[in-house]
């Protein structure tokens, strides 16, 4: 390309990029900065406010409700990520093997992914509140005979079930595309060396799909840490705040509870936590990949 054309091309690119960057700045970076500034104030969401320096951040560490929401969210995200990935991987292995009606089965197992999580959680709420206790009673199983959502000890498990039920669909599809990247020859060579079944999976398949394990766990962790819809539909943070996720607490107390400033500080710490989790996971998984 000659110089004149190149210059015109560059100008066109600039004319496209500048408005896009401005748009992104206005609705992503600017509110981020504003939230950061509010986090140093005692703003209630309306009226006047004062600067309070780092007090909001200091208070975060002593606020038992914030502490409780972190404990619940991290516990939930960990358990849900592990549960989802183990089941997805097993399902993917099954759906990728030589089975009948492969297309239909894959289609069915993917259904939960397209359904709205709020409505799904409402449906499960009925299941937990009425169906399972009724079954539990008739079978005489003690801990199932009342709603698991009503107890502070078990309510979070209900949210785990709903979260996993939906996420398994997407993770399975990603694992299937991972399994398809493993060439058939690897198994053939392996079976000559006597690697079959679990051994073949452990030593041949799993190492080759580690990049997909990374993608799935990082995506899962990030999504589960931001859990909101399920909480809204299943428990509204209860019973006695035992299932308050960080997002839910920020929404609830920041928007309606007059804690705009304080919850802004909470949101900022939450942001750092999400970035830290994602980076740490990718580092950990990358080091695993290198070992192989």
């Amino acid at each position: 390309m000659n110089g004149k054309v190149v210059n015109k091309r560059k100008r066109t690119f600039l004319c496209i990029t500048i408005p896009v960057v401005i748009l992104f700045f206005m609705f992503n970076t600017y509110p981020l900065i504003r939230g950061f500034i509010y986090s140093f104030t005692n703003f209630r969401g309306y009226g006047s406010y004062d600067w309070v320096g780092l007090r909001n951040y200091a208070d975060l560490f002593t606020d038992s409700r914030v502490g409780g929401s972190y404990w619940f969210t991290v516990k939930y995200a960990f358990v849900c990520t592990i549960l989802t990935n183990v089941i997805s991987l097993i399902l993917a292995l099954g759906l990728n093997s030589k089975i009948k009606a492969k297309g239909a089965l894959r289609g069915i197992y993917f259904i939960p992914n397209v359904l709205g999580s709020l409505v799904v959680a409402y449906i499960f709420s009925f299941l937990f509140t009425y169906i399972i206790p009724a079954v539990g009673k008739s079978l005489g199983i003690g801990f199932l005979s009342s709603s698991i959502l009503a107890s502070t000890k078990t309510a979070w498990l209900g949210i785990v079930v709903v979260g996993a039920w939906q996420s398994i669909a997407q993770n399975t599809i990603i694992y299937i595309s991972g399994l398809q990247t493993v060439p058939e020859e690897v198994y053939e060579a392996g079976s000559i060396d006597g690697a079959t079944g679990w051994k073949s999976f452990r030593n041949l398949t799993f190492p080759l799909i580690i990049p997909f394990v990374t993608t799935n766990t990082v995506l899962c962790m990030k999504n589960f840490l931001m859990v909101f819809d399920q909480i809204m539909a299943l428990t509204k943070g209860g019973p006695s705040q035992s299932t308050e996720s960080i997002s839910f607490l920020i929404y609830n107390n920041g928007m309606g509870g007059g804690q705009f400033g304080f919850q802004s500080a909470n949101a900022f710490v939450f942001f750092v936590v999400i970035v830290a989790f994602s980076v740490a996971q990718m580092k950990f998984m990358n080091s695993k990949e290198e070992q192989l």
Binding site: M226, M255, I274
Partner: peptide, 21 residues
């Protein structure tokens, strides 16, 4: 990188300022 890193910004942190904005 500026735009792509926006992926890690949770909605919860933008929510309150965006309502005002």
């Amino acid at each position: 990188y500026y735009i792509v890193s926006g992926m890690f910004v949770p909605f919860a942190i933008l929510m309150m300022p965006l309502v005002k904005q």
